[in-house]
Design a protein around this nucleic acid. Structure first.
Lengths: 99, 99
DNA sequence: ACTATTATTTTAGAATTATCGAAATATGCC
DNA sequence: GGCATATTTCGATAATTCTAAAATAATAGT
């Protein structure tokens, strides 16, 4: 069950546009960036961008905060950390290797 | 590592069956596991399993080594590490936050 | 050579996902 | 209200991926 949730998050990161969005937000940091700014950066149609952002939001990798007309997208570093952690959890529990 | 390559790797991990395969191999460690053993563990049809394994191999997350009739699948921890590293590289380079 | 075991490739239909223009919605300003 | 800006929803088409049966390949034992 946990597997399923992690797979979903990884799948969302596993698309060139969405990965670009996320990496841009990682670059920008905690303050996040407006949708419009991401659009300028990546040069994709608004409708396409909106679709991908909402998918990232749906798995919690991004949060959105509205400030009047501008919608900020904020990367959720803790969710990313948890995901990365998950990939290596139980590492070698069935073996005698040391990693 | 380029965005596109990283996205591909993430996409391969972003499928429940493939993530289960990979996590099982992570659990087993460097010695790897035969395809047949993975099949027993996950209970998926051989053709389906083979398809997913070959995708993981295609992005380098798994390597295969044949020992007579048995084909061992070995997780490539270094590729995983590189991928994880990539996700956080350039973190906050455009901001003044400290992460 | 024949048979059993292990794993891959081929194939084809079903299911999901991607793209983007156009229309719609939300918000703030005058 | 009327207008501008910011973003989403809709809808239709295109493209990709998933699944698994059937066929094929490689190896080893008898």
């Amino acid at each position: 069950m946990e597997n399923e949730i992690a797979a979903k998050k990884l799948a969302e990161l596993g698309h060139i546009t969405r990965l670009s969005i996320f990496r841009y937000l990682v670059k920008v940091g905690d303050q996040g960036a407006p949708v419009g700014q991401i659009q300028e950066e990546l040069d994709v149609p608004g409708s396409t961008l909106s679709h991908h952002i909402s998918r990232l939001v749906s798995v919690g990798l991004i949060k959105q905060v509205r400030e009047s007309r501008i919608l900020y997208c904020i990367p959720q570093f803790d969710v990313l950390d948890e995901l990365v952690e998950f990939l290596k959890s139980e590492c070698c529990t069935e073996a005698k290797c040391i990693r």
